[in-house]
Computed example of a mutant assay.
Amino acid sequence: MQLHVIDSRQDWRSWQSRGRQALQVLAAFAGGLAMLFLVLEQRPGGWWRIIDIAVGALACIALLFRRRAPITIGLILAVAAAFCATAGVANYVALFAVARHRRLEQAIMVALVDIVGSLGFWLLYPANSALSLTIVVNTAIALAVVAWGALQKTQQDLVVVYRDRAARIVRERELRAEQIQMAERARIARDMHDSVAHYISLIALYAGGLEVAGENAKNVSHTAATIRTTATSALSELRTVIGMLRDGTLVVPEETSRQRTVENLVDQARQAGQIVVAHLDRGVVQEKTAATDEVYRIVQEGLTNARKHAPGAMVTVNVHLDEADVVIAISNPVGDSAAILPGSGAGLVGLAERVSAIGGVLEHEIIDHGDGKIEFRLQGRVPA
């Protein structure tokens, strides 16, 4: 239905354009006849009058092609107007088309040909007016037509420039909005990546404990329930990632803000069998501040990396307030044991960008204490 309406509008505009062109041709021919019979005192007679009218009619019909070849039509009609009175009005319409669609220099050139043609017409019919009056009138008309056409061309060019500028502004605005949207999606995806890696590492730790214990494992049902709960949380976070990357839909994870605390992270790690020694400033980890989410992410990444790359190692977590900043330090020894989960290294990179965006600093290093004691340390400082 909408396509049919668009086609109807285009057909209507096409008919309007054809109607305007027909009216212009008829008006030019009517003006030429008026000049022949009403204006001129000395006019052609006999067969030459019929030839004059026929040439004027053809000149007016030639106006239909003035937009395709304005200079050619303008020069032809200038020559025709030098001999035929009925081509005089069509001649200036063609001159206007040259000024409207071509450069000003070209329009002035055609206007000079028109003025010379008017002198030729005066030589054929000198009784109509004095030579000086003929030159002045035709020069004034030619310059006025050129100026009017040039003004129309300038206005059209300005409209095109403004239209292009408006379209460019709209495109830039859409591009900026898309970039902001993509940046937000990437930020949320990084956050969800950290959460999913955290839960998957917990599941791997629980499952490893069951595998080692075998049939002698105690509280198998409790451990299985914990694995199920952790897997549900991981799926919830993963659903959020997929929704954001696929169509921008934000699915709120089931985990509440009350659960997203540093203390809860430490408790989850200990329940999964990870050895964690935590020194937490209660005022920092329990109070909701601008740095709460970043502190949570740093501790989460540190515990997750320890479970991936140093299974069974003791992890030390320190969170305290240092003047106006919250300082986070997470360390664990690095042994020769293989990582239980692969890592891409993107977690620390993305987290460093996020911390840097709020004016904080995140660094990590491997420290060799000698005697084969190697320690991985993750340190962060974020504004409180």
Rank of each mutant, 00 (worst) to 15 (best):
V113W: 08
A352M: 01
P333G: 09
L58I: 00
R163S: 10
S337E: 07
R163D: 07
V315A: 01
I340Y: 14
T304W: 02
I76H: 14
A272Y: 00
N332G: 05
K288I: 11
I188K: 14
R377I: 10
A59I: 03
V315N: 02
V262W: 11
L133T: 14
K308M: 01
I358A: 00
Q300C: 12
T86C: 12
G46F: 00
T72A: 15
R187C: 11
G19R: 11
A59F: 06
I73S: 13
A166D: 02
A22K: 13
R354K: 13
G19I: 01
D293C: 00
T86K: 06
Q379W: 06
V170K: 13
P44A: 06
A111P: 13
Q106E: 02
A99Y: 02
G312A: 01
V317K: 11
A78F: 00
D368C: 09
A324G: 06
T232N: 08
P342L: 06
A357T: 01
R20F: 07
E211S: 13
L36C: 12
A80M: 12
M109Q: 03
Q268F: 01
L321Q: 12
L265Y: 11
F37R: 12
L265R: 14
A127G: 14
Q259D: 02
I366L: 04
T249E: 11
D336M: 07
I298V: 12
V355Q: 04
R163Q: 09
V220C: 05
R270V: 00
T223N: 05
V295L: 10
W12N: 12
I61A: 08
G120T: 03
A85S: 15
Q21M: 15
R239F: 02
A167C: 12
A225P: 02
L26Q: 03
T230R: 11
A278H: 05
K288M: 03
W122G: 13
L238Q: 10
L33M: 08
Q42F: 03
M1T: 04
L235A: 13
K373W: 04
R270Q: 03
M109G: 06
Q274L: 00
N305C: 00
W15P: 11
P44L: 00
A85P: 13
Y92H: 15
R168E: 09
N305K: 13
S118M: 03
V326L: 07
I200T: 08
Q106G: 03
G359K: 15
A28K: 10
I328P: 15
T134E: 02
E365P: 02
Y125I: 00
Q271M: 09
S17Y: 13
V170W: 10
G302L: 04
W47L: 15
G88D: 13
Q179E: 01
Q42G: 15
E174S: 11
V295H: 14
R20S: 01
G243L: 01
M182F: 08
A111S: 05
A339Q: 06
Y296Q: 10
V299L: 08
S257Q: 02
E184W: 15
A346E: 06
L245S: 10
H279V: 02
Q268H: 15
W122Y: 15
W48P: 14
R377F: 07
I374P: 10
H222F: 05
G117R: 05
Q152K: 07
H101L: 05
S17E: 03
